[in-house]
């Protein structure tokens, strides 16, 4: 099955079995191993990537369904020399222990901040018609699709809060 994706700004061609998930395509066919396979069932969020500006679980999506889509993975968010603001904040706030969930956490948080900017409410918003301030409770709810088995949650929330507060990403 021939599929063309734009991954981190580059046109990439793929010829894979239709069963290939977007996650497996990124990791095994395009050698972008930053996105992680945790549960492979959409429960842990380690595979989170940004497709056409939206965060999704790449393990629960077929690569062939993404022909001509734009994909951003952790490799496209920053480099060791040029970290994104969220990546720097995760380092500064010690937002991880083992680091396995971190690429998914950062991709998820990057797109989540855009959702907040667009005025999307959440389950914990008192008023679904109003624009929400990003409180600890709001961040925890909006990031609930990303599990961290080391339970670095307080520092992950601090890192996101830091970047949301400074309004630079």
């Amino acid at each position: 099955m021939k599929t063309t994706l734009t991954v981190n700004g580059q046109l990439r061609h793929l010829d894979a079995d239709p069963r290939t998930t977007l996650l497996d395509a990124l990791r095994n066919h395009l050698n972008l191993t930053g996105s992680k396979k945790g549960c492979d069932h959409g429960q842990c969020g380690a595979c989170t990537v940004i497709v056409n500006g939206r965060r999704i679980n790449s393990c629960l999506s077929l690569a062939c369904m993404h022909d001509s889509d734009e994909v951003v993975t952790i490799e496209g968010i920053g480099t060791p020399e040029h970290l994104s603001a969220l990546q720097q904040a995760f380092v500064s706030h010690d937002g991880f222990q083992c680091g396995f969930c971190t690429p998914g956490q950062i991709c998820s948080a990057t797109a989540m901040l855009d959702e907040v900017e667009a005025g999307w409410p959440s389950h914990v918003s008192a008023d679904v018609t109003a624009k929400q301030d990003l409180t600890v409770e709001e961040i925890s709810e909006r990031m609930s699709g990303n599990l961290c088995r080391c339970s670095a949650y307080p520092n992950i929330v601090d890192a996101i809060m830091d970047v949301a507060g400074s309004a630079k990403r």
């Binding site: 969020g45 965060r55 389950h123 699709g145």
Partner: peptide
């Protein structure tokens, strides 16, 4: 908003 996660709802 009470269902699934941000990634799944997208």
């Amino acid at each position: 908003l009470a269902g699934a996660s941000g990634q799944l709802r997208n």
